[in-house]
């Protein structure tokens, strides 16, 4: 489902006398449907960078990133947009939404985008919000006013609303209490059962051991000169 071959990444900082930082070289990774792979390594080793490259958020200088046959490195913007709509989900650490939009709509939006009936999308959103213990009296409010943990859970609900065949999870269990952590882990397990290919970053080792089938230390992809 997700194939990463010989991927390299360089940041060029033009405004700091064109400093070039080579952050990744020859990264390889493969995730099959129903499999979950954890990216590990110390802070700054490039876990989030690799994840953002897979999502097309960062440009990749060399190599191939194939998701369901589409090469993100070469794809046109509209192909990536299409990929993100239907195939590739991403749960980031931060919630970014239009102000004033209700929580229910925020969660239902990924479904509405692919043309799911409004009623069905809303029911699915309600189901997820209930499962993630967001009190019902908050559903009509914008999540921007919520606490950090609540925002994180809204973000997860949104990420899991559509059943993407491939998912990227950036610390989905961070800042969650034990009960909600358990819910999120079960959501991940459900996604694996239905055949989703997942790449995740987990600082929570117990969670990582429970849901991940394989661990990859990304620091092996860090070029020696920069390390």
């Amino acid at each position: 489902m997700i194939e990463i071959k010989k991927v390299s990444k360089t940041f060029t900082l033009h405004n700091q006398s064109a400093t070039s930082i080579n952050v990744m070289e020859g990264a390889n990774l493969s995730v099959k449907p129903g499999q979950c792979v954890a990216l590990t390594g110390s802070s700054g080793s490039g876990k989030s960078t690799l994840m953002r490259m897979i999502y097309g958020n960062y440009l990749t200088q060399e190599g191939e990133i194939l998701i369901n046959g589409v090469d993100v490195v070469q794809a046109e913007p509209r192909e990536i947009i299409e990929l993100r709509k239907s195939t590739l989900g991403y749960v980031s650490q931060f919630l970014r939404v239009v102000p004033r939009v209700s929580t229910l709509n925020v969660v239902a939006e990924p479904l509405l985008k692919i043309g799911v009936d409004a009623k069905v999308a809303e029911d699915r959103a309600k189901e997820l919000l209930t499962r993630l213990r967001i009190p019902q009296n908050l559903w009509q409010l914008s999540p921007l006013t919520f606490s950090g943990g609540e925002q994180q859970r809204v973000n997860i609900a949104r990420g899991f609303a559509h059943e993407y065949p491939a998912m990227l999870l950036d610390e989905p269990t961070a800042s969650l209490d034990a009960k909600n952590r358990e819910t999120v882990l079960s959501l991940i397990e459900d996604a694996k059962t239905r055949g989703a290919a997942i790449i995740g970053i987990f600082h929570d080792e117990a969670a990582r051991d429970r849901v991940c089938d394989q661990q990859i230390d990304v620091s092996i992809f860090t070029p020696k000169a920069a390390a």
Binding site: F11, L13, H14, N15, R52, G56, N57, L59, I80
Partner: peptide, 18 residues
């Protein structure tokens, strides 16, 4: 030019970075 989030999060040109 490119995907909005890519241009804003990983700008390539000197002016865009600024």
């Amino acid at each position: 030019s490119g995907l909005t989030d890519q241009v804003l999060d990983d700008p390539q040109d000197a002016y865009t970075q600024l």
